[in-house]
Design a protein around this nucleic acid. Structure first.
Lengths: 185, 185
DNA sequence: GTCTATATTCTGATAGAC
DNA sequence: GTCTATCAGAATATAGAC
């Protein structure tokens, strides 16, 4: 049921999907779904919370490694993890406004913890002189927006391999946080 | 009515907003709305199409200027234009899936034209040796995702001025497309 | 644990008075 | 051009048989 709901929410949006549609996808009648979830809102919330918790748990944290390597690891991890769960990533971002206030607060807090991991890497790197960034919060949000955008177009069977995409994004992020070169033009 | 619908769609999502809610916001009864739109779908489509057309019309195109200046102009324009219409930008991105197939095709084509403007700048710059980019399509999507993300957090009365945000994003984009420096760490 | 049936409310859209 | 009233159907969720 969770898988069916996830696919439908990602394709049509939470509000546009009815419990009857989910039931039809599973192959049961609508009433049977309520043996597995108390209501529709909980179904969305559980999907989003478990996704965010898995994301945080899977996040590598080699705080002993050089910051540049930590940043590279973060970039590659973000793209790979999101590639494996495109629907979950999509709804975790798109359906925030469909959450009731209490549920929203929980997800928002988990999001904040994820962003803080990246921001800490940038701050430490800036302190060491390894990175040159302006505002670390702005840079954090810019990098996450850029990386998350990959899910809107990347397909494993497409023109570029996952590895090639990771390479190119790491290259872009690396340049973004490294001191500007002499003008070449 | 368009303004009321826009605000509600941006906050709750197209599917989650009823014609009665829009009417209540305007201060009329639901039936009266149908003097101004044939149906709810057209209301969304008209908002999105007029937004995309204004975006394309306002887009500067100084093809005589150096490509680096063209890119800087694009970056600053994108952020400023989107800052002025946060709700429109939000629904133009979030509600693509709420469009019926024919309407979706129209909006998608307009999106493509906008992306092509940026990609052309990158391609010309790469050809001239002014830029060093990997895949121009990937770079285009990465830059647009990064810039569009600004609307999710930027507030004019916030900590950073619009100008400061433009400066920092231009700095990041400029580094992204410029040849990598010698390793500093 | 799934079914059928249903309570209740809401939905987009229309008809006709004024 | 807006109102009231309404149509026809869909929505979430529940009750009770099996």
């Amino acid at each position: 049921m969770r898988a069916a709901a996830l696919a439908l929410f990602a394709r049509h949006g939470f509000a546009a999907v009815s419990m009857r549609q989910i039931a039809a996808e599973v192959g049961v009648q609508a009433g049977a779904l309520y043996n597995y979830t108390p209501d529709k809102q909980s179904l969305l919330f559980d999907l989003m919370r478990s996704h965010m918790e898995e994301l945080l748990e899977a996040l590598p944290s080699n705080s002993a490694a050089p910051v540049t390597e930590q940043l590279e690891e973060f970039v590659r991890f973000h793209i790979a993890f999101h590639d494996e769960r495109p629907d979950l990533v999509f709804i975790a971002y798109m359906e925030l406004r469909s959450l009731e206030p209490d549920n929203f607060a929980v997800i928002e807090q988990l999001r904040g913890r994820y962003e803080t991991v990246l921001e800490s890497i940038l701050q430490i790197g800036a302190g060491e002189g390894a990175f040159s960034v302006g505002d670390t919060k702005v840079t954090t949000l810019a990098i996450i927006a850029m990386l998350t955008g990959v899910t809107t177009w990347f397909r494993p069977e497409g023109r570029l391999s996952l590895r090639a995409v990771q390479d190119q994004y790491w290259n872009m992020v690396h340049r973004m946080v490294t001191v500007a070169p002499e003008r070449t033009v």
